[in-house]
Design a protein around this nucleic acid. Structure first.
Length: 873
RNA sequence: GGGAGCUUAGCUCAGCUGGUUCAGAGCAUCUGCCUUACAAGCAGAGGGUCACUGGUUCGAACCCAGUAGCUCCCACCA
């Protein structure tokens, strides 16, 4: 059979993914095994795969595949999020392109479009995840608007309402004038912008000469002014307390009040108060019973209450009113000013603080267990530094505004009667019954359901429960919940992670996941966040086509410790691809031996030792690997595996057991090599599932399905034999010594050499390999020190390779002299330490001991080198 | 304004309890090799004031204080 010298992932990947699906190897149902569960952070239903997903899902797949191999009943639940505002925005945009305005459509007609869009684009991302190799149980794919899931969201609302945790209230909320909806605080992004601070003077009522000057960045809100406020301690304005000011352009008289809230140092120390359009002003308004003038419409235009500029956009008005103020002589000056302005996360328009009736969740009590159990490490954060931010947020948690003025989502189960009262109920019939209990005359046509939907996160916070229909049946949720690990981005720690923990304690009485692994942000080489608008993000599908899914997986994991941003560079994928190719070629070599196996050939000593060592080495790395996984040091686990394969297995082991060209191989060595290779494939599998599965089946016939590598048993941990590993290190040093002699003196590898050893610590374990790999005639042990030889020292043993024909004796002398000088310098530093009385008196015995050993070793080495120098002639 | 974190080789980062894993890894670079698994490879080599300043200690990349720079999170200074 001819195997190509380069690994070709394209056909392999599709073949094995189909195989895994066909044999339902990712399927999980409860059984007697211990469960290991991961729920996917559901991507937006109409989203496409980006690099962040790649990183995130590669890690999840890695964890779940390893757990599966370790005998857990491993389940990775996939699904998508309806992403109410994001999806609705996309649908609105698409309709606009077709010349349809949302406002022209009925709710039902709009939802029909939205579902159509969802069915068309929904699940693309899940198909893309399959390309990556994601081992999800696809039969369980959930959507946050599935019928049952929808029900659980509504039931959760009803439950919290009954518990008095949900209330409706008029609050200052963040209003998105483009999407025409309220946003939670977390959906507002503050950006520093260069703006202007306008100083505007207001006349004092009853005086023609007196003025008071305020400073504002939003002059258009002057239309909503109902007071002027100064600090009571501010001596500049004492004389104005209790007087009234006249709002420019409008001529409205407003009170001048005094409150500590005003900073005397900022601006003029004098603040205009617009209770309807600023959260702080709103509080002042409540405190001083001020009039509330709501001068802005939902879309950011001026309302009739503003009196002037009615119907104009808020930003046009800003320009216009400044001109008018200036013309009327009210503008004192304009300063450049940097301030922070809130933008909508989704639509990127400036948020308008707006007074409105919204639904809220009272978070104070609900969140308590969620705070405590992260702080006491019941739920562990990786890296733990995020506990700080979490605590900070949880300790200052505010009520959660959960209503959104959108159509796409879970509709709020509240109905309003003709008198404005409301009832919360699961269905309209139930609501009607509640109304009729109070007033039998009310009919269905008298009541109307709240038009708003719930915040997306009000559904996704139930994800770890509701994917198992945990609100309705126990069989699955009691088995799979709490889940094992959650892999997500720190950006959604408050949006999602914290709230899932809260819901978990509220509805299951325990944590939703044991570990939270926070990935970093995938950035480009210059450290910029990858984004569509910058165009700096490669298409993951293209990448996988180019480097193979395994190559990209390795590339993603090579340099991404938890919580650290990943500076992505395609060369990482290249390295991943090269690694895949290396493994492939190791396989080709081993496969090539199969037909050379000869039962009559006796196993060479060199191979016997090599096998023993390789097994020990494997065990040592396996121990590290398991430890790295436990600590979520994913990139270190990968690097250990990388070195195990490349350095230990390929560079050393395979060379040690490789039979001479054309020679046969003994059966024992071949079998052992296959066994080692299989173990290596197992630990590689979570990183590179496709390639390893391919080789696994090339190695031998496997039972259909059950013989798949992804359900093979993770290698058992055993003693590593550290003594042998130590001897091996010594062996490699001898080999390096020999290679250097050849290299420096241009002695071809083909030329056989002989070697003599004056051994202080004779150990012949690896001699057969030294002869084999070093291409030596022999190794002779003697107490003699042969002259005219190349020499090197390893662990107190002196190695001599007699000069061959054309030798540079001077060069050899210089080399020895350099080494001598270095060793003398080293000795000097050690002796300086040892002659320091305070060191000798204070350092622990063990440290002292090693220093003394260093000293004696250096002394004997110096003696050896000097002696060798004297034998050169 | 408050908080957290970071600064170690050209790049990305390890360095866990202060001392034999103590100055490391991978990549990149340079040199020599198409050696019958692999040039997507092999054999070697160079490269660091551990941000800076001081302190503690017999001993500091590591602990403490300060300084500088960078990053992130939180917060309504108009």
């Amino acid at each position: 059979m001819e195997i190509p010298s380069k690994y070709d992932p394209t056909t392999t990947e599709d073949k094995w993914y189909a195989y895994w699906m066909e044999h339902k190897l990712f399927r999980s149902v409860p059984d007697e095994r211990k469960p290991f569960t991961i729920v996917i952070p559901p991507p937006n239903v109409t989203g496409v795969l980006h690099m962040g997903h790649m990183l995130n899902n590669t890690i999840q797949d890695l964890l779940v595949r390893r757990a599966r191999m370790r005998g857990y009943n491993a389940l990775w639940v996939p699904g998508t999020d309806h992403a109410s505002i994001a999806t609705e925005a996309k649908v609105v945009q698409k309709l606009r392109k077709e010349g349809i305005k949302k406002s022209d459509l009925s709710r039902d007609a709009f939802l029909e479009h939205a579902w159509e869009w969802t069915h068309k684009h929904g699940g693309i991302i899940l198909e893309q995840l399959k390309k990556l190799g994601a081992s999800c149980d696809w039969e369980r794919t959930r959507f946050t608007m599935d019928e049952k899931y929808y029900d659980s969201v509504i039931d959760c609302f009803l439950d919290l309402y009954k518990k008095g945790k949900i209330y409706r209230g008029e609050r200052m909320i963040n209003w998105d004038p483009a999407a025409l909806t309220a946003l939670s605080d977390e959906e507002v992004i503050y950006k520093e912008v260069a703006s202007k601070l306008y100083h505007v003077k207001y006349a004092i009522a009853g005086s023609t000469s007196e003025f008071i000057t305020i400073a504002t960045t939003r002059p258009e809100t002057i239309l909503g002014d109902t007071a002027i406020c100064v600090n009571p301690k501010d001596e500049r304005y004492l004389h104005l307390h209790g007087k009234k000011a006249i709002v420019p352009l409008l001529g409205r008289e407003v009170p001048i009040i005094a409150d500590e809230y005003v900073e005397m140092e900022f601006g003029t120390g004098c603040l205009k108060v617009t209770p309807a359009h600023d959260p702080n002003d709103f509080l002042l308004g409540e405190k001083y019973k001020l009039e509330v003038v709501n001068m802005m419409n939902a879309d950011g235009t001026i309302s009739p209450a503003g009196q002037l500029y009615v119907g104009m956009d808020r930003f046009e008005v800003r320009t216009k009113i400044v001109e008018d103020l200036s013309a009327a002589g009210h503008l004192v000056k304009t300063e450049e000013h940097i301030n922070k302005v809130g933008y909508s996360e989704r639509t990127d328009v400036v948020i308008e603080p707006r007074l409105s009736l919204q639904w809220f969740v009272d978070m104070k009590e609900l969140s308590k267990p969620a705070l405590d159990h992260v702080m006491d490490d019941t739920i562990r954060f990786f890296p733990p530094k995020f506990k700080n931010a979490y605590r900070n947020w949880m300790e200052n948690i505010k009520d959660w505004c959960i209503s959104r003025q959108l159509w796409w989502g879970h509709r709020i189960p509240a109905w309003y009667g003709p008198d404005g009262t409301f009832e919360v109920a699961k269905t309209e019939a139930e609501a009607l019954a509640l109304f009729q209990a109070k007033n039998p005359a009310i009919t269905a046509s008298d009541i109307q359901q709240d038009p708003d939907v719930l915040d997306t996160w009000f559904s996704s916070w139930l994800w770890p429960i509701s994917v198992f229909d945990g609100f309705y049946k126990e069989d699955e949720v009691s088995y799979y919940y709490p889940t094992a690990d959650l892999v997500t981005a720190p950006e959604i720690m408050f949006f999602w992670v914290a709230r899932m923990i809260i819901a978990g304690y509220e509805y299951r009485g325990t944590f939703p996941f044991r570990n939270v692994y926070y990935t970093g942000i995938v950035r480009d080489k210059q450290g910029r966040k990858m984004s569509k608008s910058l165009g700096n993000s490669p298409d993951p599908i293209d990448l996988m086509a180019q480097y193979g899914a395994d190559g990209v997986r390795v590339g993603m994991l090579l340099s991404s410790p938890a919580g650290n941003d990943l500076l992505f560079d395609e060369s990482l994928c290249e390295q991943g691809r090269n690694f895949a190719n290396k493994i492939w070629n190791a396989f080709r070599l081993v496969k090539g031996w199969e037909e050379k196996v000869d039962n009559t050939v006796v196993q060479p000593e060199s191979a016997r030792v090599a096998i023993e060592w390789m097994n020990a080495r494997f065990q040592a790395v396996l121990a590290d690997l398991n430890d790295d996984y436990d600590k979520f040091r994913i990139n270190e686990a990968l690097m250990s595996t990388y070195k195990l394969v490349w350095d230990d297995f390929c560079a050393w082991y395979l060379e040690m057991v490789k039979p001479a060209y054309g020679s046969a191989m003994d059966a024992t060595t071949y079998a052992a090599t296959i066994s080692i290779f299989e173990n290596i494939l197992k630990v590689l599998h979570p990183f590179m599932p496709f390639l390893t599965e391919e080789i696994w089946h090339f190695i031998s016939e496997r039972a259909a399905g059950t013989g798949s590598l992804c359900v093979a048993t993770w290698p058992e941990a055993n003693e590593a034999n550290p003594a042998l590993l130590g001897k091996f290190d010594q062996f490699t040093e001898v080999m390096i010594g020999l290679r250097n002699i050849r290299k420096e003196n241009n002695i071809p590898q083909k030329e056989k050499l002989s070697m003599k050893v004056k051994a202080a610590n004779a150990d012949t374990t690896f001699d057969a390999n030294i002869i084999h790999l070093g291409n030596l005639e022999s190794i002779e042990y003697s107490s003699e020190k042969p002259s005219n030889s190349f020499t090197f020292i390893v662990n107190g043993n002196e190695y001599f390779v007699p000069f061959t024909a054309n030798v540079d004796v001077e060069g050899e002398r210089k080399k020895l002299t350099d080494e001598l000088n270095y060793t003398k310098g080293f000795l000097k530093s050690v002796e300086a330490k040892l002659s320091n009385e305070r060191f000798v008196n204070n350092a622990p015995a063990a440290v002292l001991e090693t220093e003394r050993k260093k000293q004696s070793d250096a002394l004997s080495k110096i003696a050896m080198i000097e002696e060798k120098l004297s034998t050169l002639n």
